[in-house]
């Protein structure tokens, strides 16, 4: 078990965003979280990453309780995430965005890094080479590595977001709607990249996504949420045949696709 949510509740003033949500993610799994708008999917992610403090319940990452941690403590444990509304460093280059992703990996960071002592430099050079070879080239970002992220088209920004999350070498990668707003080709490329990294890096993935074609084709297991509660859990097959899920979510989703 790599991640465990135990009866998680979260409220904002009067709004109950999460209400007793429990699920477990196994190592190496591609686990999807779906549900209508406002169901609480992003809130789950923000709770895991300690951006939101749950009002009740516990979150464990590999038996470590995450509740008391600060957002900046989470990455070092091996958890990283992307954002639904890409939160990039718009005024910085693609390479700098990715480098900052690997921020917590550079041991020789502060003092020796500041004065560029030889060993810090070597470590940094090796890290940069790795980031370029293994992440930027894979994501097709190497040619634009010196461009400001804010000037890139949306599809590429989504990739930078993914690359930056990968740069910290997570064990658990959390993705909040990675293919939202992409056309079919872009979406297919993105999924291909995801599957490559999952396999090559042995990642566990928690995926939040509205594109049911993508979700159903790549997920190992799925949890469905509605109004802050878990209403179903199972394999893609089971979820697609679940009457309740069809009524409140998949049915609507299907109508949207047809129209």
């Amino acid at each position: 078990m790599i991640l465990k949510l135990d009866k998680l509740s979260l409220s904002f003033g009067g709004i109950q965003a999460l209400n007793g949500v429990s699920f477990e993610i196994k190592e190496g799994e591609l686990f999807s979280l779906i549900g209508p708008n406002g169901a609480g999917k992003t809130s789950v992610i923000n709770a895991i990453c300690s951006f939101y403090k749950p009002t009740k319940g516990e979150i464990y990452f590999k038996d470590k309780l995450l509740n008391p941690l600060k957002p900046y403590n989470i990455t070092a444990l091996g958890v990283s995430r992307t954002f639904q509304n890409t939160e990039l460093f718009a005024g910085m280059s693609v390479l700098d965005n990715i480098k900052l992703g690997s921020h917590n990996r550079l041991k020789a960071s502060t003092l020796s890094g500041m004065f560029h002592l030889p060993w810090a430099k070597k470590e940094e050079r090796e890290e940069e080479k790795y980031l370029r070879e293994e992440i930027l080239k894979r994501l097709g970002l190497d040619e634009v590595r010196n461009r400001f992220v804010g000037t890139l088209p949306y599809g590429l920004q989504k990739r930078v977001d993914l690359g930056r999350a990968l740069a910290s070498r997570p064990e658990l990668l959390i993705l909040d709607e990675p293919v939202a707003g992409m056309n079919n080709d872009e979406s297919r490329d993105m999924v291909e990249c995801l599957l490559h990294f999952k396999k090559a890096w042995n990642l566990t993935i928690l995926l939040v996504e509205h594109d049911m074609e993508v979700v159903m084709s790549i997920s190992d297991r799925i949890v469905v949420m509605n109004f802050g509660q878990k209403i179903a859990e199972g394999t893609p097959q089971e979820i697609q045949n679940n009457e309740q899920v069809i009524t409140i979510y998949l049915g609507k989703q299907y109508e949207k696709d047809v129209s």
Partner: peptide
């Protein structure tokens, strides 16, 4: 540039 993103990266 972006405090939220920086925090999520461990800064």
């Amino acid at each position: 540039d972006n405090q939220k993103a920086a925090a999520s990266l461990g800064v």
